[in-house]
Design a binder for these strands. Structure first.
Lengths: 252, 252
DNA sequence: CGTGCGCTTGATAGAAATCAATGTCAGTGG
DNA sequence: CCACTGACATTGATTTCTATCAAGCGCACG
């Protein structure tokens, strides 16, 4: 576990001792909306940051809830055990909050796996609840984040419930792009951090389908794929497909 | 809208002036965990109850969030607009809280439609947030409810993502039974409140598939269906199917 | 008594899964 | 340096599940 870190983002190694106010994910993170003073308090709360090496679990299904985790940098997938094996329920990057599914029962219902070497902020849940009484705005912020999560899951249910394979993948690509755009990266050119299998699991499709669809999109001139490097050449059209405007499967 | 109420549960007409402490859904509702004193405060908060006639909307997608709603009695479906039309995202009965998906954006992302004449408690959201500062336990309670909602949605995503039609319907029937059991009714014998179309939309299947599956289950001796009256004759086996233990499609 | 809605049932088509083979690349060890 | 291995990905052939298309039934309602 102390081996040199492959594929780490530049500076990742030193990211464990940055304060909230200086954090690049600050705008997206839990403390947003707190004023400077409160920001300091919150900074105190986060006892420790934690490095998670690629492939390691941040928490597993069945473990008791101790912390929520704010992704500081890196990339995670969350997956949930089901009758037919694990299913990926989401991909999370800098600024996102992990572990909220465990609050109701006190036990994690899913697992979070790092897709690259990552750093998270530990947020002890009991301390967080205590702090709510002092800093009410913080509580409102958490509610908002949980509501966003509900919204996200409903969106996923919609995707799985009524979209065809092609449309699902279009949604996926566009959303990945959006996530990068929000963080200041190119929305049309990026490295996928997850395997085809992860994508398939997330979209409710097989790995073969993902492969074929990527090939089809490429033939249509919509994208270019080389391993995990993706370029979206026609994001407009992709977005139209994602919205169901452009008809599916017009295999030229 | 003032016509006599068809299909109303007994007493529904007088249910609008009952206090929280006497509410039959009290054990399942938002104020759970509050002591008697706080219970009274909360009772004050709920300015008004509201009757919703069968087929009417409690709120619609796009409307600003004013209240959360606790189902007092009756039955709702929530549905969400998507590229390919509306999809049912859940069925809610007494004690459940509606509208949480709107908290993040302040705008409802889905619509809640009464499946029978129902009564809900209005919970003005701004007042609720204010009350949090006085009654911290209330805030914890809301967090728990939202987390339950996240959990529920993930469960649905799993169902839609990796189960086959038969298994989905088994899950649906068993869960309906559980919901009734929690409220003191028979878990194996009940009236469906929703149409086949609603079930299909919820499970990501067509109405024809629902019909065929119900027929198949009946032939296998697992259930009896007459219109919307359902009897589960072999809940064990159904549960096994729902859990993926019993093999699917052993058409005798 | 017709009309419409909700539901059922049958025939057929189509999308994606499954099965199977092959290819690519990184890492490992001879 | 090169063969070997295993994870990951692509591609093709076939099967299977569910959607789609189509027809008809039963019941509530005007």
């Amino acid at each position: 576990m102390n081996a040199p870190i492959p594929h780490a983002l530049p500076g990742a190694a030193r990211m464990t001792d940055v304060h909230c106010a200086e954090c690049s994910a600050y705008q997206l993170c839990l403390p947003i909306g707190l004023d400077a003073l409160n920001g300091v308090r919150f900074d105190d709360l986060i006892g420790q940051r934690r490095r998670v090496t690629k492939g390691a679990s941040l928490y597993r299904a069945g473990q008791p809830l101790r912390n929520l985790y704010a992704v500081r940098c890196g990339y995670f997938k969350t997956r949930r055990p089901g009758p037919a094996g694990e299913q990926v329920t989401g991909f999370e990057m800098a600024g996102q909050l992990l572990g909220m599914e465990a609050i109701s029962s006190g036990v994690h219902q899913s697992e979070a796996v790092a897709l690259e070497d990552s750093v998270v902020c530990n947020i002890p849940f009991s301390a967080l609840e205590t702090l709510f009484e002092e800093v009410p705005v913080l509580q409102r912020r958490l509610c908002r984040l949980m509501s966003m999560e509900i919204d996200r899951e409903q969106h996923l249910a919609l995707l799985l419930g009524q979209m065809r394979a092609e449309q699902r993948l279009a949604v996926f690509l566009v959303e990945i792009g959006c996530a990068y755009a929000m963080r200041g990266y190119s929305p049309t050119q990026f490295q996928l951090r997850m395997s085809r299998e992860d994508i398939g699991s997330y979209l409710g499709l097989t790995i073969e389908s993902i492969s074929r669809l990527l090939a089809r999109f490429t033939k249509l001139g919509l994208i270019t794929v080389d391993k995990r490097a993706v370029v979206l050449h026609d994001p407009i059209r992709l977005a139209a497909m994602a919205n169901g405007i452009a008809p599916c499967s017009p295999l030229a």
